[in-house]
């Protein structure tokens, strides 16, 4: 904990899923594994195409839930900035990813949190092994997703990656997390 006056988040119990939601959870799992694979393999265009136009990609710093509009985050990208990030990676001159990080990640603890019409709130944990010129690095994160069904395909509307050590000094994080 960074601030000794910080309040612990409340812990919600798991929701009871309808049979349709049970099936949707399977699709969500498949979608998150697919996203993970695209990231591990640096499939930049395919990953970018997962995002909706109103997307937010957020990696906060200094806690679980700071206000991204007033506090520094590692990443706080709207759709346009996600595009710049991908374009930069694709120039072949993004030195920190030339050569690319070698990656494998585990996505687990996938939880269906809520459904609002065509949108689904989901949580998962991510554990990522990275090998780069610098050496081996492991990353651990609690992820929160808002997914939306668009033309019967799941899309990323919002992804929040809470690195468990986001209040500490961290190494360069230039692959897609």
């Amino acid at each position: 904990m960074i601030d000794e006056n910080e309040i612990d988040p409340s812990i919600a119990e798991p929701v009871a899923l309808s049979p349709e939601q049970e099936l949707m959870l399977r699709r969500i799992e498949q979608f998150l594994y697919y996203e993970a694979r695209l990231q591990d393999l640096h499939a930049y265009d395919a990953w970018e195409s997962l995002w909706t136009d109103d997307a937010i990609y957020w990696i906060p710093a200094n806690g679980e839930n700071p206000d991204p509009e007033t506090q520094m985050s590692y990443v706080y990208d709207n759709r346009s900035r996600i595009g710049v990030r991908i374009k930069q990676l694709k120039t072949g001159k993004r030195h920190t990813q030339t050569p690319r990080s070698q990656l494998a990640r585990i996505i687990s603890n996938i939880e269906f949190i809520a459904q609002n019409g065509d949108e689904f709130e989901v949580r998962a944990n991510a554990f990522i092994y990275e090998d780069s010129l610098r050496g081996e690095t492991t990353w651990a994160a609690r992820n929160e997703y808002r997914l939306r069904l668009v033309d019967n395909k799941l899309k990323l509307v919002r992804k929040k990656v809470v690195l468990v050590n986001n209040n500490k000094p961290i190494y360069t994080l230039s692959f897609l997390v």
């Binding site: 990696i59 520094m72 710049v84 030195h95 010129l133 360069t172 994080l173 230039s174």
Partner: peptide, 24 residues
């Protein structure tokens, strides 16, 4: 703030590459 977040830190468009150079 917006411009700083894009540019600097471990995932920054600029500083991630500077920092790669420091290590090399």
């Amino acid at each position: 703030r917006q411009q700083t977040m894009g540019s600097v830190g471990p995932a920054g468009f600029l500083l991630a590459d500077d920092t790669e150079m420091y290590e090399r």
